[in-house]
């Protein structure tokens, strides 16, 4: 039970119920779609980039609580960041979920640290990283949907 509570923290459940920055972004100049065929999670991200800065970011799609909360919190934390900073954040986020016992990474992630419980659930890591991979694809200007497989 305690591991489960670690995974489904209130913040995550809250973002799942009331995702922030949800819906299409009119005037986006980058977009990409991500898909996790294992569980059917599907997400589309929209970005408005100017001079290397993420001025606005929104998402839409459907999926499990982890992927929805991850997308919601990702958009909140990426707004206003430079592309370089976004890349760095993704790197840390990814490390927290995959590198065992890396408390250091979690400390620098701020609110995103609530996802640290996901690393105890290997089958759910892709749910948390899907929106991030999708943003990366959008930044790289890829039109092909990205897949977690």
């Amino acid at each position: 039970m305690s591991e489960l509570r670690e995974l489904y923290q209130q913040v995550i459940l809250d973002h799942n119920r009331k995702p922030r920055n949800f819906g299409k972004l009119d005037g986006a100049n980058r977009t990409a779609e991500g898909y996790n065929p294992l569980c059917g999670d599907q997400v589309r991200v929209y970005l408005d980039i100017e001079a290397g800065v993420i001025r606005d970011i929104r998402f839409e799609g459907s999926g499990c609580a982890i992927s929805k909360a991850a997308a919601s919190m990702m958009t909140a934390s990426l707004k206003g960041k430079t592309i370089g900073e976004a890349d760095q954040l993704f790197g840390r986020f990814h490390d927290m979920l995959t590198a065992a016992g890396n408390g250091g990474a979690a400390a620098e992630l701020g609110k995103l640290a609530v996802f640290s419980g996901v690393c105890e659930f290997p089958s759910r890591i892709k749910c948390a990283t899907l929106p991030w991979h999708t943003v990366r694809a959008a930044l790289a200007g890829k039109d092909e949907p990205v897949s977690t497989e």
Partner: peptide, 22 residues
């Protein structure tokens, strides 16, 4: 209001093996 994948994870933690997906 709960995605099948989340149900599957919670049931798994109760020792119950089900499939969640398509």
């Amino acid at each position: 209001g709960v995605h099948a994948h989340d149900v599957g994870t919670i049931l798994d933690h109760a020792g119950i093996a089900v499939r969640a997906g398509h």
